[in-house]
Design a protein around this nucleic acid. Structure first.
Length: 421
RNA sequence: GUGGGUGUAGCUCAGCUGGUAGAGCGCUAGGUUGUGGUCCUAGAUGUCGCGGGUUCAAGUCCCGUCACUCACCCCA
C-alpha cells in the first residue's frame, strides 16, 4: 500500500456508507418536519470565529483545531463544530432581522486534531439544529424532543438523555467562584489546577476516579441558580416530562464549549468504546454578542453521525437487511451483439423507473449469472443470439428460478408489472 | 501530548522452542459449448509494515522507526 487516508480519518464503504446516509436522514427528519430550514456553511472559517465563539480556554481551540494560512495570508480553520458558523451566517445575512426564532438544521463534516480512538476521529460528521433569537423554555424542550425522536426513529433504545442547567450571566459567576474556592482545596495535578482558574466547570467532567472521589462534595450549579434560571429550567423539565421524554438530571453535566448558558443536555450511549456522547447541545444566549452581533438568545444541538452508527451497531440494529439489494433487474448478455442490445435495454429500464444493472467486462454466462445473484435483483434478463434471432429475451425469476420468454418490445412493461411499478 | 496492544494474500487470521509461508472466506476459470444461489476441481495475488542487528539460517530473537488500534486527557 502506498497511500492511505490521513491519520485519524476513515472511509465510509458500502454497506456501512449506506447506514451513515440513512442515519443522517433519520436524525434530521424530525427537525425538518418541525419547520427547520437547511443551511450549509463553509467547511473552513476565519480562525477568529472559533477562537471567539468556541472559547480560547477550550481544548478545541487551544489544541484541536486544524488551522492553516491560505495564500492570501488569512488564518483559516477547518470547522471543529457547527454552531459558530451558523450564528455567523445568520448575523452576516441578517436572518435575525425577520421573524424569530430562526430555525435551521445542517449536516456536515467537522474536524478536530485529536488522537483517534473508537468513536473519536479527526474527521467526523454531525447533524445539527439551531433555533436562534428566542428565550423560551419551550424551544429548549422542542429541540430536545426532536433529537430524542431522531434516535427513536432509528430504533435505538440505549440512548439516555442527561440534562442540566449552567445558569446565566447573573448566577453563573457566583457559582463559578464557589466552585473555584472548593476546587482549590483539592489535591489535583498541575493541568487540572490550571483548569480551575480557566474553566472550573469542566473539572467536574473529569472521568478519573481519583478526581471524581474528591468531587463528591463539590458545590452544584443547581444550588446557586437565580430565580429566573430556576423557573426556566423547571419549565424545560416539565415540558419534557409532559411529552413523555425520559431524562436524568445530571448536575455535573458540563460541556466542552464556552458558549453554553442555562440548559445543557447530552445524549449518551454505552456502545461507543470509551466515548459516551452520541449527541449534545444546549442554550447559548451570549454567543451572538461574543461574535459582535446583537443579543440573540438561542439553543441548539449537534448529533454525531458516526457515533450514532456505532451505537446502532452495538445494539445490533443492522442485520443483513435492506440496502444490500441494490437493483431490481440484472442484465445477462451473451455475445457482442447482445451486449450492445442489453446496454440499451438496461438504459431503457432505468429511464422507466426500474433499478437495473448488468454484467460488464465480457464475463461468461455463469459469471454474469453470479453477478445477477450478487446484485440482489429479483429478475435477470438473459439475452443471447438465439433470443435476438426471435426478438425476445429470457426473464428469469431469481427467487423461484422460473423463466419465461418475453418479446423484447414487452420487456419493460412486463418487468414493471411484475415489480408493481 | 502520554501509555498498552497489533502489523503475514483483497478480507479474517494461523505459523510451537529460528530451518527462507499456510487456512478459511472472497475472486477467476472449469465441471454444466445458454443459466445464479448448493457441491466438486483448478488457478492467481505476499517487498511476512520499513530499516538495521544477532545467526550458517529470521515471519519467528534484539534495536530503531512508521502505521493501525485501544485507552488516558478531552469531546460529537
Amino acid at each position: 500500500m502506498t497511500l492511505q487516508a490521513p491519520k485519524g480519518t476513515f472511509d465510509w464503504l458500502p454497506p456501512q456508507s449506506e447506514r451513515a446516509l440513512a442515519v443522517r436522514e433519520a436524525l434530521t427528519a424530525p427537525a425538518r418536519r418541525a419547520g427547520y430550514g437547511y443551511i450549509e456553511t463553509p467547511v473552513f472559517e476565519d480562525t477568529a470565529l472559533f477562537v471567539r465563539g468556541v472559547g480560547e480556554s477550550t481544548d478545541i481551540v487551544s489544541k484541536e483545531m486544524y488551522t492553516f494560512e491560505d495564500k492570501g495570508g488569512r488564518s483559516l480553520t477547518l470547522r471543529p463544530e457547527g454552531t459558530a458558523s451558523v450564528v455567523r451566517a445568520v448575523l452576516q445575512h441578517g436572518l435575525h432581522n425577520g421573524q424569530l426564532p430562526v430555525k435551521l438544521w445542517y449536516s456536515g463534516s467537522q474536524f478536530r486534531y485529536e488522537r483517534a480512538q473508537r468513536g473519536r476521529y479527526r474527521h467526523f460528521w454531525q447533524v445539527g439544529a439551531e433555533a436562534l433569537g428566542a428565550e423560551d423554555p419551550a424551544l429548549d424542550a422542542e429541540l430536545i424532543i426532536l433529537a430524542s425522536d431522531g434516535y427513536a426513529g432509528l430504533g435505538l433504545t440505549g440512548v439516555r438523555l442527561l440534562i442540566n442547567t449552567l445558569g446565566c450571566k447573573e448566577c453563573r459567576p457566583v457559582y463559578r467562584a464557589a466552585l473555584q474556592e472548593f476546587l482549590r482545596g483539592l489535591d489535583l495535578d498541575e493541568a487540572t489546577r490550571q483548569r480551575i482558574e480557566i474553566n472550573p466547570l469542566r473539572v467536574l467532567d473529569d472521568k478519573r476516579p481519583e478526581v471524581q472521589a474528591q468531587l463528591a462534595d463539590a458545590p452544584l450549579v443547581t444550588d446557586h441558580l437565580c430565580e429566573a434560571c430556576k423557573v426556566y429550567h423547571e419549565e424545560v423539565r416539565s415540558l419534557l416530562s409532559a411529552s413523555g421524554v425520559i431524562y436524568a438530571d445530571d448536575p455535573r453535566l458540563v460541556r466542552g464549549l464556552d458558549y453554553y448558558t442555562r440548559t445543557t443536555f447530552e445524549f449518551v450511549h454505552d456502545g461507543l468504546g470509551s466515548q459516551s456522547a452520541v449527541g449534545g447541545g444546549g442554550r447559548y444566549d451570549g454567543l451572538s454578542e461574543m461574535l459582535g452581533g446583537p443579543a440573540l438568545p438561542s439553543v441548539g444541538w449537534a448529533l454525531g453521525v458516526d457515533r450514532t452508527v456505532l451505537a446502532m451497531e452495538a445494539e445490533g440494529l443492522f442485520g443483513g437487511e435492506a440496502g444490500e439489494s441494490r437493483v431490481q433487474v440484472y442484465g445477462v448478455p451473451l455475445g457482442e451483439e447482445a451486449r450492445r442490445r442489453m446496454f440499451l435495454l438496461i438504459t431503457e429500464l432505468r429511464r422507466a423507473g426500474l433499478d437495473a444493472d448488468m454484467s460488464f467486462g465480457g464475463k461468461g454466462l455463469k459469471g454474469a449469472m453470479k453477478g445477477a445473484d450478487r446484485s440482489g435483483a429479483s429478475y435477470a434478463v438473459i439475452l443471447g443470439e438465439r433470443d435476438i434471432a426471435v426478438e425476445s429475451a429470457q426473464v428469469k425469476d431469481l427467487v423461484s428460478g422460473d423463466q419465461i420468454t418475453v418479446p423484447l418490445v414487452e420487456i419493460v412493461t412486463t418487468l414493471k408489472e411484475r415489480l408493481n411499478k
